[in-house]
Amino acid sequence: MLEVDHVHKEFGSVRAVRDVHFTIPDGTTFGLLGPNGAGKTTTMRMILGILTPDGGAVRWNGQPVHANTRKHFGYLPEERGIYGKMKVRDQIAYFGKLHGMREPSLGQEVDRWIERLGITQYADRPCAELSKGNQQKVQVACAAVHRPQLLVLDEPFSGLDPVNADILLAILRELQSNGTALVLSSHQMWQLEDLCDRFCIIADGENRASGTLEELRSVFPTRVVRIGDTHGTSEINVPATTDFAAMLRELVSTKPITRFEAVEPSLHEIYLHAIGGSAA
């Protein structure tokens, strides 16, 4: 289990993260949401030990994250890099070695990833010769070749075409089913809503909301009610505490109703509500 315990981080006079806290149980897929500059990347870097928090702590299974712990983590940063002149196979193997893998399991795992990602024909070619999409596949393999217990992905879908996004999604589901805990940040809310078990929304370096989608919905203050009649369908916002049965009875008693639907807020709506004025 990963615990991010009220961390904060400053860069000179800039307070990047003020008080972020959440826990990620083993095998959970966790969505970290927030507008640009909210502190998501800084939080991820603190999880990975790239940055040291100025206050608070990051713990993995109750212990502070240290060099050996990090061998069980994987990372796909938002700004992805690659050694252009290094061959695909060598590149994936290098990152495997950096995470403590050794032959023969390293070679087998590298081959498995190359095959899984459909880049067998490029395995012995320099990465610079690959298309951007295929380079991104190599980067995913570099991040996950060592079968990490925790994989942190910063905007993993950015820059991917729909086909490659689907491939990545399938890979993430595979990792999920293998018990890898995933931490994702993305602006594609529908993908996160579909993929993640828990969420944390941060803005201005602070927690704004966290929990499962149900928990987030339960504290959302309003609901949209879609009402259909002979003139068409209309939507109205009502407090979440509204007694919808009573509301329906009242409506039916006044006019002919063809449709009545209390819509649960989407992650997108919850997100917009949570970040409030930080949306800009």
């Binding site: 870097r45 940063p77 990152f95 980067q139």
Partner: peptide, 12 residues
Amino acid sequence: SRIAELLVASVD
């Protein structure tokens, strides 16, 4: 090439 961040996540 921005590979540095990936490296420092793996190695001190």
